[in-house]
């Protein structure tokens, strides 16, 4: 187990290093110079400025300085807001995290339940309906679902009934969190339910389920005690990628519903070409997801001991 965790940690570290290096070279490839645009700067001042920011040093030294800065948590100053990127993240991320966690929980719980229903009632109209929802969820991008929900449930329903069930924008009351969370979770929900159904069907065909049936256990006990516990494994492995999908999906969903989270800043920074903000948020997202993946991997190792065995064999 220890070896497995160390190995995972090592990969997470390598991934972060790769991401930081990539970001550094991307920033260097961008056209322009930080001191262009000011009035003609005297040669000596330019030299002093370059020396101050370390721009006169060779590239590998600059890379090293950059990596050191990033690993110490310094993401630089936003050009557009003229505030440290760290501050902006600290202020905006809690909203995104709130939205993301709600979506993730909703997607996982509903996805697993739908998958179970579809597998147990395989071939009936339950199965058809569930799998239809799933395929639609995979095929319709979150921003479209968000816009449609906003229009029909937020605006039209209000115009029809005169009661505001769902506020169109904002992030304060519980009702205002429902639509964005649903829009964000729909795609992941679909993925999870499809996965759960396949895995559940697989488990239901196993011999120990037959044994449990012939012992005379109730259907309820067979499903919850014997089938679901084994079938849920693949769902746990995809939670890392699902978290990534939810976070990146939040870029647009937050924009649609005017949630004051990071997605809004991220999209805005792309539109205003605020390079430090983009690289800063990218690194932050990257690190967050690498850590999320790491947690999922380690948790999986604990839940399913077979993982590290197969891992050691290869």
């Amino acid at each position: 187990m220890f070896k497995y965790i160390v190995k995972r940690l090592f990969y997470a570290f390598l991934t972060l290093l790769a991401l930081t290096t990539l970001t550094f070279f991307m920033m260097r490839l961008l056209p322009g110079d930080p001191f262009i645009g000011e009035k003609a700067i005297p040669e000596t001042t330019l030299k002093a400025l370059n020396a101050k920011y370390g721009l006169d040093k060779p590239v590998y030294v600059q890379l090293w300085m950059y990596i050191k800065g990033v690993f110490q948590g310094d993401l630089g100053l936003s050009i557009h807001y003229n505030r440290p990127v760290n501050d902006i993240i600290a202020q905006a991320f809690p909203y995104s995290f709130d939205l993301g966690i709600r979506s993730l929980i909703f997607a996982t719980v509903m996805g697993v339940l739908l998958g179970i229903v579809a597998a147990v009632k395989r071939g009936t109209k339950w199965d058809t309906v569930t799998m239809f929802i799933a395929i639609v969820g995979v095929s319709v991008p979150g921003f479209i679902i968000g816009a449609l929900l906003q229009y029909f449930l937020g605006l039209k329903l209000f115009q029809l009934t005169g009661i505001r069930f769902f506020p169109i924008t904002g992030w304060n009351s519980f009702a205002s969190k429902l639509l964005p969370a649903f829009a964000l979770s729909f795609g992941s929900l679909a993925t999870i339910s499809r996965l759960m159904r396949t895995s559940m069907l697989d488990v239901l065909g196993q011999d120990y389920i037959k044994t449990a049936k012939s012992k005379g256990l109730s259907q309820k006990k067979i499903i919850w005690k014997h089938a679901v516990r084994n079938a849920i494994m693949p769902v746990i492995t995809v939670l890392g990628p699902i978290a990534a999908a939810v976070l990146t999906g939040a870029f647009v969903v937050e924009n649609i519903f005017a949630v004051p989270g990071m997605g809004k800043f991220f999209v805005l920074s792309i539109q205003t070409q605020d390079y430090t903000m983009i690289s800063g948020t990218t690194l932050f997202y990257g690190a967050f997801l690498v850590i999320a993946n790491l947690i999922v991997d380690i948790a999986y190792g604990f839940i399913d001991p077979r993982v590290k065995l197969t891992d050691a064999k290869e």
Partner: peptide, 17 residues
């Protein structure tokens, strides 16, 4: 390692450059 980084983030970075 490539898979460890969410692909949309790499794509956004590349698109900037």
């Amino acid at each position: 390692i490539i898979n460890g980084i969410p692909y949309l983030i790499i794509v956004v970075l590349l698109m900037m450059v």
